[in-house]
Design a protein around this nucleic acid. Structure first.
Lengths: 136, 136, 136, 136
DNA sequence: GTGGTCTAGACCACT
DNA sequence: GTGGTCTAGACCACG
């Protein structure tokens, strides 16, 4: 189970945690019946306050992805995999859509946009090798 | 001069205004020496509080993109076009990069990501063809 | 707009606030478009921490009863009256149902239960007539 | 001896157990000198953690309703029947009172409240037959 | 002034 | 040990 949190993003940390848990369940890193990490544990790992994590978990419970087990932890529900796969797809699509909408509406020539996308797709899908061929 | 504002985005409205002004200058919709709309006028058009617009303009002044002309308004500086073209490119690239980073790290199969990107690119490059404002 | 909060009830304070706002809207004390009290104001009046109030308001927003207006406050939605009347009815019914279920399952003779109910109904429909509406 | 436990009620489970034991004694299901079930046994039956049951029993001992008999279990005291009958009545009355207080203060028309009460009374006092004639 | 996010830390109920 | 509630107070974005 891993997390990719960006404290300085405009997206609230608790929202990022929500997404990350959804992604983990969607990709099978967490199975039905598993307990997700405790608020305290995850708070430590992400150097985030436990309350922030708790807020994210509350949201996940509301989404029907986990249920609180008194004194035990938060458990992945039977519905979660299906829910999370749909949700992941939707969240990813949304982000891509918005980035492209902004790109196009910025007036940047279409070819330019395409080139940027290609650049970044290569960067990301090939293994994270961080010498991007910037075309500044 | 046009604006594409999303009040419910996690990105602050004043930031969105900053970007939109930059985009307008970059694509030639605003030329050196032009006056950008007044705080009140733009506030009306965007149904946003004038203070919010003022905050955006402050930021634009800080970036050297406009300067206040007492009694006249905010004027596009001679440096603005170059600045804004670079800035536009960087902002767009950044957004695309983040969307793709999230997409890949979400565990969604690479094919899937590519497909989503293609879908959205088509959506945006076609439909969006409302008498586009300049392409540089 | 009045509130009847019981800090020592097993029901969380924020839940009580949720109910009370719903009741106020259901009975017309708050109309569509009205702003509900600010978290700080209500926190003061109820001698409750503003964060507790904020949590209640979040829940109300999730229910579609109010919407946050940036920098202005929380506004009663057009759907709220209908939603709140249904919700009020349901909450009240639920509480009554549980009290009676417990009463019956306690083994108390049915007559006895009925008598208790009559007693209390009389108390509440009459006595309570000291034009309360105070938040005490 | 029977129990009616609601794990998702805001009322703590151990409190519910306390009430249920009191009700059982009050209605004669448990006589003076009887042993109440063991912590482990009851924990199993209610699918509740034994510690939770133990906490309830502690409370019952404090109330003077049972006493620990080393090596045998918890025994119903001679005072218990009288204590429990009074206590039962009081607990039931209290719950009814609160439910009605909330109902009235919710602004729901008095007739409406009465109707809800009648509905529920019928549901509960006729034998628990679970196809309630909802009058939604 | 408004609500939203986050940190910090207390106490409670339950396992 | 777990999550849930609450208090307290900081900072931000917005009006």
């Amino acid at each position: 189970m891993w997390f990719d949190i960006h404290p300085d993003s405009p997206i609230p940390i608790f929202e990022q945690i929500v997404s990350q848990v959804i992604f983990n369940i969607a990709s099978g890193g967490l199975a039905v019946g598993d307990l997700i990490p405790s608020v305290r544990d995850l708070g430590m790992r992400l150097t985030v306050h436990p309350n922030t994590v708790a807020k994210a978990f509350q949201e996940l419970e509301r989404l029907g992805v986990v249920t609180a087990r008194r004194g035990r932890g938060m458990e992945v529900t039977p519905d979660a995999p299906k829910l999370c796969q749909a949700e992941r797809r939707e969240r990813v699509r949304q982000r891509i859509r918005e980035a492209l909408r902004e790109a196009v509406s910025s007036g940047l020539p279409r070819e330019e946009v395409r080139r940027l996308v290609e650049d970044e797709i290569i960067n990301h899908s090939n293994g994270r090798r961080r010498e991007r061929h910037q075309s500044e």
